[in-house]
Design a protein around this nucleic acid. Structure first.
Length: 1093
RNA sequence: AGUCUCGUAGCUCAGCUGGUUAGAGCACUACACUGAUAAUGUAGGGGUCGGCGGUUCGAGUCCGCCCGAGACUACCA
């Protein structure tokens, strides 16, 4: 027996199937039963259990799950090791917040040890929630043996990778300009800079300074800056090599001194007004209005200006080395300022780079230890050497002062004939999220990986990766690789993997540790050399690692570099570290590298996707993954980002509990392509669950109901295809076409297309056409070959659909599959997830048949619309319909589905009208696609000519097979194949037309037709009575019907029809009696009595 | 600021390499059907395909600019 149900309850199905999976170890079996030599390698990007799982995690994980399940069903062994990302700033920040401390307190009011213990404890806070959502949504991943990034094994593997980079010479320590918060006394990560409200509008003084060219009289180069406080640190000026510059003769508006100033030609009009050849100094005004000038005296390219020396603008400190030269910078533009950029290597990232490239010195002073430091200290104050402004803050840190340093500097420049223009400038500037004070860009020491040196190889290997969507790989990721900067590995934090590098105090000697064994050896050596007792700590985190002192070959003490490794390196190391490679599992690793497939959100493009790729290329010269799906964001239904603040988040738990995991997953996948953002709307889930799951459930219920009545079991042999009726062969053809398409979609990572095609098949083909048209085959009569064919066909469809949908809707698919197993010919695997995806049999696909059926559907639809227009019920039979045919093939095709059409629209016969006669009115259109090239400009004229042809002329074309016209004296010959002749009307008939298909309907009613209509009407009413009387569909009945004239012809002629339709054993026409009920028929009321016999 | 994605009916989305009446589902309205029935069918309204320009005989589709939404990367002086 097939199980029958009272209604569809998806959450209930989830529960039952989950329990079943658990009890029967289905997930484990789905791996174990597959050939270990047929692996499909998947990497799980580790989530952080520090936060609650959200609905977007369900999205990302659904995608992962779909392809892993699909590949399992393709026979692949898909191991899925789970993982947890346990380090990183978000965790530290949340701990700080909870403890009510800041970074500066760590090591003071709380020991590093206590702090890290707290982090370790916090990081798995929501693990049980994550486990729960993983299970409830049906995401299969191995949570029993996950990799955890804070374990010693994981750390050891990371060290090994770092040491590999070190040995390849890819690791270096350098200083770069980084965001730094003087107020908080700490460097900031870019993550912190991207926090909400980090960028704030502030008003600064911008200044165009005059840099005096050496060896020329009164000639100045103009450079614009929004940070006048960096001017004392200026050591170079950058120009664009192809930008054109001009020299302008004018006067300084503050000092009235004559001057020649150089700036970009494109920027000229932003500063200067009209030419005044006889301009006098006292005409100059010190406002912001445009500046008059005398004349333009020269023009140069940037390249020509290169190498010009100029005098130091503010000489508080004299640099050591090359300085005060014009250099080329590719970042220079003419969209702002003067097209000439003031360079202060200590306070700008671009400045630093370009200065380094050109050998330009930075302006520094010695600090207390004699090491160079910039002219601004770490509190954000000028050092004493900048005498005029010593001790003053360069930005607004809440100090009380009359004027800002920037203002005072511009005043000083003004009086010294060094300022060309100054004005207020409003721009957005990054602020420290904690102190709300502006940050500085400040030189800080860091360890870097020289990723830039492997840029080409990374780009090259990236081209072999299949990105979904491709644009992310080429654009967002590819472009990013092309502009790759060195990877700043250092984090001056506490909870993370310590950098395994020890250095001597003078930085001359260093060692990079690659394993615990090596560490032990070095410790032992150091112990002997120093006569102390140290050992490898049980925990490889700070502070324990910091305490270890090693010894160099020369006997120098080596101290650990205090930095941690960027957490992104942790996750990028997972292909190796998850197996504790190379210390264990060498084979396992080799089998599982690179991954066949990974998937995460687009936000990981420069995160995990990048670090995986970078480490793979740098250490193994290989891609780390072959296929990658990057999904978009999950937004609320209005397209807003979900956030706690707006309260528009969707709780994944309650959603799944209410609608079931399958409907939720199906909705997310089918509604939009994964890489497009999803506007998440709960009503969309409802729609999917009604329209798709409801329909499929109904189809199964229908099948189960009748299969049980007929005791159908697929025990007998299959009815051969050629013995099945047209409609069976059709639906099986469509089914096999579907298999092929869906298989391809899954294989090419197009899950949305797969689900849409499955939905369309279930809705349109299976439910609304096959089942609807075949209903009576299931309920009529005893078991016959035709009936058996119907059962087998429907069974096959349901069975195949369950497999095709299994990757996306794992619960419902397994439920359906297992229900169907009750009547299987051969018992399949116990779960659908142990089964294989069906294989499309091209021998069953019959395109002509599919085309035929499409005609049947369209013709039926036309006839029904005509009936509708004339208010003729489908129950009322009609004599005939007319179909104009324009070629033999069409007639043959329609003839093949004639019975279906006639039954569907309740018409007795089809008459074909050949195109030759003049009954049909036609229209001619050119075949634009093929004629476009041939006709070109004349296309339109020809189309117009064809549109104005008379019926006779069209017939002439059909007869002769060609058409000739002239356009502007040019003769144009067209063949029949280049023209599209379609019927549009049959005068005198009731006609409907749709895209070249025309149907005419005869609506004359004979007495006979009326009688038959009445018979059907009666059948319909009697069925209703059966139903309202709660009779079983198999109960036999007896009917008494009042002898009224309008039913007599129907009963006389169609008694046996009525009886067989309604399972009546007796139909008596009698006088009105007791009981029974009154029927309301179009012709009047009639008494009827229906009883069980 | 740069890079990328997206913008088609009230809503969610199709629309392949350009081809002449721009489609589907939902929602709405009306009618029908009634042995799948909290289903189903038919019909209707609803679109300057974000805007402007260009290429072309022909543009939702190709190109340029702009506007809007979003993501990522960013001290452009």
């Amino acid at each position: 027996m097939f199980k029958e149900f009272k209604g569809l309850n998806l959450p209930q199905i989830d529960k039952e199937i989950l329990e079943y999976w658990d009890n029967s170890q289905i997930f484990q079996k789905s791996i174990d039963q597959r050939d270990a030599n047929q692996p499909f390698v998947f990497y799980e990007g580790p989530p952080s259990a520090n936060g609650m799982p959200g609905i977007h995690h369900v999205m990302a994980r659904a995608i992962k799950d779909i392809f892993c399940r699909f590949q399992t069903m393709k026979g692949k062994r898909v191991e899925r090791k789970g993982g947890w990302d346990t380090h990183g700033l978000p965790i530290e920040l949340s701990v700080e917040k909870e403890l009510g401390i800041t970074k500066e307190d760590i090591g003071k009011s709380i020991s590093v040890e206590e702090y890290n213990d707290k982090c370790r404890e916090t990081v798995m806070r929501y693990k049980d929630k994550w486990d729960a959502i993983t299970k409830q949504m049906g995401y299969w991943v191995d949570l029993e043996n996950p990799y955890v990034t804070y374990t010693n094994e994981y750390i050891e593997s990371v060290w090994w990778l770092i040491s590999q980079l070190y040995q390849k010479g890819l690791l270096y320590k350098g200083y770069t300009i980084q965001p730094y918060s003087p107020a908080a006394g700490t460097g900031l990560s870019s993550h912190e800079l991207n926090m909400p409200n980090a960028y704030q509008e502030i008003t600064d003084i911008s200044a165009v300074a005059q840099f005096k060219v050496k060896g020329e009289v009164n000639t100045f180069i103009l450079a614009w800056t929004t940070t006048p406080w960096t001017l004392p640190s200026n050591t170079a000026l950058a120009v664009g090599k192809d930008i054109r510059y001009i020299k302008v003769h004018t006067f300084n508006r503050y000092t009235k001194e004559e001057c020649f100033v150089i700036l970009a030609k494109d920027r000229f009009s932003s500063y200067f007004s009209e030419q005044q050849p006889d301009l006098q100094p006292d005409q100059m005004k010190a406002g912001n209005q445009p500046i008059p000038y005398i004349e333009i005296v020269g023009e140069y390219t940037g390249r020509e200006l290169e190498g010009i020396h100029y005098e130091q603008l503010l000489s508080y400190v004299i640099p050591e080395g090359k300085a005060f030269e014009v250099i080329l910078g590719d970042f220079v533009t003419t969209s702002d300022g003067t097209g000439i950029v003031h360079i202060s290597p200590t306070f700008g990232a671009d400045d630093f780079k370009v200065a380094k490239l050109n050998g330009i010195a930075a302006l520094t002073v010695p600090d207390v230890n004699g090491n160079p430091m910039p002219l601004v200290d770490k509190q954000g104050k000028f050092v004493s050497q900048v005498t005029d402004f010593a001790g003053r803050y360069v930005k607004d840190y809440g100090q009380k002062e009359e004027r800002s340093v920037d203002t005072d500097i511009t005043i000083k420049l003004k009086t010294e004939n060094k300022l060309f223009v100054s004005e207020k400038y409003v721009h957005s500037y990054p602020h420290c999220w904690r102190t709300d004070k502006p940050i500085l860009y400040y030189p800080l020491d860091s360890w870097f990986i020289k990723t830039s040196s492997l840029k080409e190889r990374m780009v090259q290997l990236n081209q072999t990766i299949n990105w979904k969507p491709a644009s992310t790989g080429e654009g967002r990721f590819g472009k990013w690789l092309e502009n790759l900067q060195d990877w700043n590995l250092s984090r001056s934090r506490y909870w993370g993997i310590p950098l395994p590098i020890w250095r001597s105090a003078d930085a001359k000697e260093e060692i990079c540790i690659q394993s615990i064994a090596q560490l032990k050896m070095e410790i032992d050596r150091a112990n002997v050399a120093l006569g102390i007792q140290q050992s490898v700590p049980a925990d490889l985190h700070r502070p324990y690692m910091d305490e270890i002192i090693l010894v160099s070959a020369n006997g120098e003490k080596l101290f650990r570099e205090l930095d941690l490794i960027d957490v992104w390196f942790d996750s990028g190391a997972m292909p190796y570290a998850q197996w504790h490679y190379p210390f264990e599992n060498k084979e396992k690793f080799e089998q599982n590298f690179p991954a066949d497939f990974i998937a995460e959100g687009v936000d990981q493009t420069r995160g995990w996707f990048y670090t995986l790729h970078a480490i793979g290329v740098m250490v193994f010269d290989s891609v780390a993954f072959k296929n990658v799906v990057s999904n978009g964001l999950v937004l609320d239904k209005n397209g807003q980002k979900m956030s706690k603040r707006l309260g528009n988040g969707i709780d994944p738990f309650s959603t799944i509990e209410k609608y079931g995991a399958d409907a939720t997953r199906w909705y997310m996948i089918s509604n939009a392509q994964p890489w497009d953002n999803l506007k998440f709307d709960l009503s969309g889930i409802e729609e999917v669950s009604r329209k798709f799951f409801g329909t499929l459930y109904n189809t199964y219920s229908f099948f189960a109901l009748y299969a049980n009545i007929d005791q159908f079991k697929w025990s007998s042999a299959e009815v051969p295809l050629e013995k099945r009726p047209e409609i069976d062969r059709w639906v099986l053809s469509e089914l096999n076409t579907l298999i092929h398409l869906v298989d391809t979609d899954y294989a090419t990572y197009e899950p949305t297309n797969a689900t849409r095609k499955i939905m369309e098949f279930v809705d349109e083909n299976l439910s609304n056409w096959y089942v609807r048209l075949c209903r009576r085959r299931f309920w009529k009569g005893e078991m016959s070959e035709d009936k058996l064919a119907a059962y087998q066909t429907l069974y096959t469809c349901l069975n195949v659909v369950s497999r095709l949908m299994a990757p996306v809707a794992p619960f419902f698919a397994d439920w359906l599959y297992r229900n169907l197993q009750e009547g299987a010919l051969e018992k399949g695997p116990e779960s659908i997830h142990l089964a294989l995806i069906p294989v499309s049999d091209s021998g069953i696909i019959d395109h002509a048949l599919e085309e035929r059926m499409a005609y049947a559907q369209r013709i039926s639809s036309l006839v029904l619309s005509l009936r509708k227009k004339e208010k003729l019920k489908v129950r009322q039979p009609l004599q005939k319909m007319l179909i104009p045919i324009l070629n033999d093939n069409f007639e043959k095709q329609v003839e093949g589905v004639k019975d279906l059409i006639l039954a569907e629209v309740n018409v007795k016969e089809i008459e074909y009208v050949s195109g030759a006669g003049n009954i049909i009115q036609k229209k001619v259109k050119p075949d634009f696609k093929s004629l476009g090239k041939k006709l070109g400009k004349n296309m339109k004229a020809v189309a117009d000519a064809l549109a104005s042809l008379s019926q006779e002329e069209i017939q002439q074309i059909e007869k002769s097979g060609s058409f000739e016209t002239s356009v502007s004296e040019e003769i144009i010959q067209l063949t029949r194949e280049e023209l599209d002749i379609v019927p549009v009307d049959i005068p005198g008939w009731l006609v409907a037309t749709d895209a070249g298909l025309t149907v005419a309907l005869d609506i004359q009613l004979s007495d006979e037709l009326i009688a038959e209509g009445m018979a059907r009407e009666l059948v319909n009413r009697i069925q209703n009575i059966r139903k309202s009387s709660d009779f079983n569909v198999t109960d036999k009945i007896a009917i008494q019907l009042e002898a009224l004239d309008f039913v007599k012809p129907a009963v006389e002629k169609y008694a046996s029809y009525i009886c067989s339709e309604t399972l009546a054993e007796k139909l008596d026409v009698v006088e009105k009696g007791d009981g029974g009920e009154m029927l309301d028929l179009p012709e009047g009321e009639i008494w009827i009595k229906v009883t069980l016999s």
